[in-house]
């Protein structure tokens, strides 16, 4: 079947099998390998991307469901995403890096959808993303730092 999926601002028209998962579409069809597969049962969140601004686990979304929708992945050059990435680097919010793209995309979703995400809120909203290396502490610190920066920039622009 033909699909037309906008990924990171660019439209892709592809003829795919109806059963193809969104994560396979991104990784195998578009070569965007930053989105990872960790569990294939939608438990680990390594495959988290945004679909029309909502966080979804791309291992349990069909590419067909993304037809005529807009997907944002870790490869996006959105400036707010860059702020988050920089915060993860500075706070050492990653070790092996495998869960990182999913964590960062979920952080992007959290910061886009909450005025004032406190630590409890951040933890609650990261529950669907597993990390085996960091114990989450440095990840939560990264999210907080990114949040401060994003807010700071909003205040400056006001």
């Amino acid at each position: 079947m033909m699909v037309n999926i906008k990924v990171n601002g660019r439209e892709y028209k592809k003829d795919i099998e109806p059963r193809m998962l969104l994560v396979s579409f991104l990784r195998d069809e578009l070569n965007l390998t930053g989105t990872h597969i960790g569990c294939d049962t939608s438990n680990c969140g390594a495959c988290t991307v945004l679909m029309d601004g909502k966080s979804v686990k791309s291992c349990t979304v069909l590419a067909a469901q993304a037809n005529n929708h807009e997907i944002t992945t870790i490869e996006s050059s959105d400036p707010k995403l860059d702020v988050i990435k920089q915060s993860f680097v500075e706070e050492n919010g990653l070790q092996c890096g495998f869960c990182t793209p999913g964590m960062i995309m979920q952080t992007f979703y959290i910061l886009e959808n909450s005025e004032d995400a406190d630590e409890e809120y951040i933890k609650k909203n990261l529950r669907g993303n597993l990390c085996r290396c960091t114990g989450y502490k440095s990840i939560i610190d990264s999210v907080k730092k990114a949040e401060e920066r994003v807010k700071g920039e909003i205040n400056v622009s006001k």
């Binding site: 390998t33 930053g34 992945t73 870790i74 495998f98 990182t100």
Partner: peptide, 19 residues
Amino acid sequence: MYLNRFVNGEGKYVDDIKF
């Protein structure tokens, strides 16, 4: 630096390699 590669989705894990 690995941190910069990984936050940008530029890691090369075995499943990212294609021949």
